[in-house]
Amino acid sequence: MRNRVTDMFGIEVPIFGFTHKPEVAIEVTNAGGMGALAASYYQPDELERILTDMDEKTRGRPYCIDVLFANKVGEVVPLSDRLKALPREHIEFVEKVLDDAGIPPLPPEVEAEMLREKPPGHGHTEEGVLEVLEIVVKHPQAKFVLSAMGAPPAYVVEKLHSRGITVGAMAGSAEHARKHVQAGVDLIVAQGSEAGGHTGTISSMVLWPEVVEEVSPVPVLAAGGVGSGRHIAAAFALGAEGVWCGTIWLGSSQSELSPGMRKRFIAARSQDAIQRKYDTGKPLRGLRSKWTDAWDAPGAPQPLPLAGQKLLVAPALKRLELADAADYMGYMSGQIVGRIKDERPIRDIMENMKSECLSVLKALGSQA
C-alpha cells in the first residue's frame, strides 16, 4: 500500500497498532505498520528502558508514542492523601465491593511502591505529558506523537516539529478535529464511539467522512471498530488514509492481558464492551465486569472527576490485578471484541488484515 501516510513515515502499510505493551508495538512495527505505545502511565526511568529496547528490536523502523493531554483533569493529589481528599461515601463503597468479593488487601511492599510512583492522574496533566516527551525526543525512531484526549498546546507541537517529529491528535467530532488542526497537528485520528478507551458518542460510519471533509487536506486515520481487512477497505472508502487499531491485539498471547482476562476477551460479545466513567471519571469503553455491575447497581455513588476517580480506584484496580480476579477486571475494550475468537500471534493478525484488505479492494475494483 502506498499513500500519503505510508510516505510520511516510511512504513509499508498504514496500520497503526495502539497498545500498552511494548512487545505488541514492536511486532506491529516489524510487520510493516507502526506500533503506538501508550506512554503516560510509565515512570520516567522505566520509559527510558522501554524505548531503548524498542529502538533495538524495531531495527531502525519508526514507532509512535501515545500521550494524554486531557483538557479537564482536576486536582491531582498524592496517593498518601487519598483518605482525606476523597468523599468517605466513595471510599467505603469501593472497600465494600472488594471485601464482598474476598479480594485481599495490598501487600505492604506494593502499597509502598505505589506511594513512590507518580500520583494517579499525573500522566493526564500537561506536566506529566512533558515529562514523557522529554524522554521521547531522545529516541530518533519515535517519529510520531499522538495526543489522545485533547489538542496538544501549540508550543508543544512546535517543539516536536523542531525535532522532526510528526504530531497527531485524536478526535471524536469534526469540531474537535478542526481545533486540533488549528493547533498545528499534522494528522488526525477520527475515533468512533465503538472504540475502546475514552471515546465520544459519534459512530465511526458517521464520524470518519465528517472529519475527512472538515480537515482536508490533512490526512486522517480511522479508529473505532477496526479489526479486519474489510474494515480497512471501508476506512479507505470513507476517505481515511489509514487505520488506528487497539482492541484487536488483546486476544494475542503477546498482549498485556493475563490468561484469565484473555479468555474473557475471547468469550466476549460486542455488546459486552460498555461505556462507563468508573475507572477514570471520563466516558471509557471497557469490558463489562462485576466491578462495573457494582457501580451500576442502585445506591452506588456517582463517579468523581478524572483525577479524583483515578485516585479513588487506583488501589482497588491494583488489588484486583494481584488477585487475578478476572470476573471483576474489565480492561479497555472496543466493540470489535466480538471478533476475537482465539489466541493468535500479532504477526498473523497483521498479515490477515493486509491480505484481506487487498482482496476486498481488488474485488471492489473488478465490480466497478
Rank of each mutant, 00 (worst) to 15 (best):
P62C: 08
I349T: 05
M332D: 15
L304H: 08
E321Q: 15
M332V: 15
G242Y: 04
E75T: 10
K362C: 11
A36C: 15
A267F: 04
H161M: 01
A183D: 09
T6G: 13
M332N: 15
A183P: 05
P104G: 03
S289K: 06
L187T: 06
M170S: 01
A326L: 10
F16E: 06
E256W: 13
S162Y: 01
I135Q: 00
L106M: 05
K290H: 12
G33C: 12
A273V: 11
L187C: 09
N352T: 13
Q302S: 15
A316H: 04
G286T: 04
L146K: 08
I349H: 01
E27D: 14
E214S: 14
E194P: 13
D81Q: 10
A368F: 08
G172H: 07
G239K: 02
M54H: 11
E213K: 15
I65S: 02
V136I: 08
V145D: 06
L86Q: 05
K21V: 10
A237F: 04
I15M: 14
W249V: 03
G35Q: 10
A294L: 06
E113H: 06
L37V: 10
G192T: 06
V215G: 05
R82C: 02
G35F: 09
V313L: 03
A183N: 10
T166G: 02
A368M: 14
L306Q: 12
N30I: 12
K143V: 00
V97P: 00
T58L: 07
L238W: 05
K290D: 11
H122T: 07
K310F: 00
N71C: 10
G338I: 07
L284E: 07
I135N: 00
L37M: 08
E343H: 03
E23L: 13
E126D: 14
K277R: 14
A31F: 08
L257T: 10
R230M: 13
L115N: 06
Q271W: 07
G197F: 05
Q309R: 01
R319D: 05
G246E: 01
E214I: 12
V94Q: 01
D81F: 03
A326W: 09
G168C: 12
R347F: 04
Q309C: 00
K341I: 05
A177C: 04
K362L: 13
A323M: 05
V360Y: 10
G123S: 03
V13I: 14
Q254C: 04
A314P: 01
A300P: 05
A368Q: 11
D81E: 15
V73I: 10
C357K: 12
A31K: 11
E356P: 11
R288N: 14
T280N: 02
I274S: 03
L47V: 04
P140R: 09
L322V: 00
A363Y: 08
E27C: 10
V243S: 11
